[in-house]
């Protein structure tokens, strides 16, 4: 079975009058880098919560179908048990931070998983270094700026060394350089350590180049699922308001003029290269 498996999964929040997810089926294998995108309110966060068990164990409601994570049916497994496989970075980082300073925040998750104290100390220092948190070490998480909180929330999740990282719009509060830094770290962990990544993002120019797959959600349903170069040029992406990279938009406009590049560019550099290819041939 896949590492994360949605089998005809539907969910409706208690008191809501429509389904937040409807008959979602998808298999995500170990080592994939999946970007989830789609209009505001389409169910991305609900999907994330269904992977780490907050749906249905914390957010209650009507449920049909199943979600399996690392061989466990999430209906049966507790959130605590699922935390040994899944690390979730919340959309609103302030809701995730529970301790009094950076060191404690980073140690909190691994402690709950029963990681050895010595190993925890090592991880904490590594993460502080990797994510540039040294200057915030003594700070209270609720006395940090929005971007500082978001960086800390990501750090605390990475300290769990999760098999599956689920990150819900993890760059929304980050300055552009920090966003690049964090996304590079995630991509590196995916490539080098095989960490499975499921990441929600609106600005696909930031992540399309790293992703092996994009899942497009609309009104709780999967409307497209495939490689970025296949999904982004489709009309549906434009129609539902996906933040398509400028280079891909140019590709589409050229296509309507009858000009075909040899593949779909996701970045400006790639666009330049593909145009160069045409002129030199």
């Amino acid at each position: 079975m896949a590492l994360v498996e949605f089998a005809d999964f539907s969910f409706k929040y208690l008191g809501a009058d429509s389904l937040a997810l409807r008959k979602v089926s998808a298999s995500i294998n170990e080592g994939e880098y999946v970007v989830i995108t789609g209009p505001s309110g389409c169910g991305k966060t609900t999907l994330c919560r269904a992977i780490n068990g907050l749906v249905p164990h914390f957010h209650r409601g009507y449920i049909a179908g199943n979600v399996y994570v690392d061989g466990q049916n999430t209906r049966d497994a507790t959130v605590a048990l699922l935390a040994s496989s899944v690390g979730l970075v919340f959309q609103n980082p302030a809701n995730q931070l529970v301790t009094l300073n950076v060191e404690k925040e980073l140690a909190f998750g691994p402690e709950n998983l029963g990681v050895e104290p010595q190993e925890i100390r090592k991880r904490v220092e590594e993460i502080i270094d990797l994510l540039n948190l040294e200057h915030l070490r003594e700070k209270h998480p609720h006395e940090m700026s929005g971007g500082e909180q978001q960086r800390l929330a990501m750090a605390a999740t990475l300290a769990l060394k999760p098999k599956v990282l689920v990150a819900d719009e993890p760059t929304s509060n980050l300055d552009p350089k920090s966003a690049e830094l964090i996304l590079d770290i995630i991509s590196e962990l995916n490539k080098r350590n095989g960490m499975t990544v499921i990441l929600v993002e609106h600005r696909l120019d930031l992540v399309a180049k790293d992703a092996s797959r994009i899942i497009l959600l609309d009104k709780g349903q999967i409307v497209a699922d495939g490689a970025p170069r296949d999904i982004l040029p489709q009309d549906i992406s434009m129609e539902i308001g996906v933040g398509i990279p400028k280079a891909t938009q140019v590709y589409k406009r050229l296509q309507t003029k009858g000009i075909e590049l040899s593949r779909v560019p996701l970045t400006g550099e790639e666009l330049a290269m593909l145009v160069g290819e045409v002129t030199s041939s």
Partner: peptide, 8 residues
């Protein structure tokens, strides 16, 4: 623009 898709 936090949390907003392209149309929003």
């Amino acid at each position: 623009t936090i949390g907003q898709d392209a149309h929003q």
